[in-house]
Design a protein around this nucleic acid. Sequence first.
DNA 1: CTGCACTAGATGTATAGACAAGTTGATTGT
DNA 2: ACAATCAACTTGTCTATACATCTAGTGCAG
Lengths: 258, 258
Amino acid sequence: MQSFPLERDGLVPVYVQIRKRLLDRITSGDLKAGDLMPSEQEISGTLGVSRMTARQAVKSLCDWGIAYSMRGKGTFVSPVKLEKNFRQAQSFTEEMNALGFRPSSQVFALKAERAPTEVAEALKAGRNSEVIRLDRLRLANSKPMGIECAYLLHSMCPGLIHVFDPQASLYETLWKQFGLSIAVADEIVEVGLPSAAAASLLRISRNKPVFLFTRVSYARRGHSMQAVEYVKSTYRGDRYKIANRLTRAKLKLAGISV
Amino acid sequence: MQSFPLERDGLVPVYVQIRKRLLDRITSGDLKAGDLMPSEQEISGTLGVSRMTARQAVKSLCDWGIAYSMRGKGTFVSPVKLEKNFRQAQSFTEEMNALGFRPSSQVFALKAERAPTEVAEALKAGRNSEVIRLDRLRLANSKPMGIECAYLLHSMCPGLIHVFDPQASLYETLWKQFGLSIAVADEIVEVGLPSAAAASLLRISRNKPVFLFTRVSYARRGHSMQAVEYVKSTYRGDRYKIANRLTRAKLKLAGISV
DNA sequence: CTGCACTAGATGTATAGACAAGTTGATTGT
DNA sequence: ACAATCAACTTGTCTATACATCTAGTGCAG
């Protein structure tokens, strides 16, 4: 643990500073997988904070799966490596940037229309709700990766048609222009064969398997969680794969298995 | 909040009891999505616990995504429904049971062999490690769903070949016979076309797209996380889909995006 | 050498209090 | 009528303490 003093100016909570120091020791390799981390008492004494504050820092690392505690023994660094490319609710743009590819898009539809039944139901909107439809071919390093057909609730982002830059990230635009931050998304993944139009755009033959995604994204707006976006995507099977980390359900006592 | 007293016998922590009461109010519909939950002070006063204990109960609900807090306003029930069928690190058996199907298996290989290079690397075991290979056709309601080819470290489950019941759940056997509890698994999902053998077993033609899973499962044994199982699976694309819940990365301040 | 008791140290739980900071609505002064 | 202020209530952070429970080692009695 570095011993230079913590900042008590109230700008950054003390437990966040402690957590950052612990994370730095893990990412720098000073603390390796399976290593014993400093105990709560030790942190408390070294940095001059109460044990509960030290505990708050350690516990949040455990909540994130970066460490785990064993009663009576101590807290250890989790041996399962942290990998960046586990799919989060991030946009194609962010995902490709994280993987080191250069993302781009070709917009071939951007217009307002009545929500199809399937879309209206998924977004829990009225049958005749107006949506903005955005069809894009997605490319990484100029090679076609997939097609995305997005439906956005017009009421949540009025005027998107006029302010949207075809090369910009949709999620970034939603945030900067409309204050919408996509917090969670439910996604169904299926396999299939591409439609004739999709095969042509993706430059593959129609008998090549593809990923089919159906996604509903939710934004936190004030204190309500609002369905904002419905997307159907087709991605090339030879250029795309999904990495998932599966974790055992946490809840059994409570009767809900999350 | 029910007002009958909490049990202070130390068997069940007080904050777990409080959490259970809050969860009961949510699952029973007493508290609906978007509703304001009782404040920490209110819980503290009503149940006669300290505010920090009440807070611990509320915070764990927030950690699980069941509720969310806003400073100055209160804590609200999260509007996104809890669904049971989001893929966890559960076995085929558990998954099919949860979906209401009747799972079964046909074992067509169960033998000890030297780990192939790919398997040895994934399990972080020596080149000549002995593994147990278990090939199974998986069926739901007697219809073929997929093929799983599992490699298990022999050192972690010696004698599995003799005690394994072909109709039992592998994970259940690992737990009951060897004390191995699969805690986390990393999975790669790809799409492809089935091999001739796979197509025949799955009773599909070779041009039907399939899911290809590659999975490494880890068990917590003592205080170390040990790779135990390497599985390659082929699942029928017309009978299988994946439901994922994607959540925004929590960490930005700390410099790690989990 | 075996086995039991004890101890030091670790996390888990619980309490009581304090202050900071954000929200909301009522009150008060202009 | 309007605007600024204040009061009450919320969550967020931090401290100091206490006891429970589990682990691992030490040492002593047998």
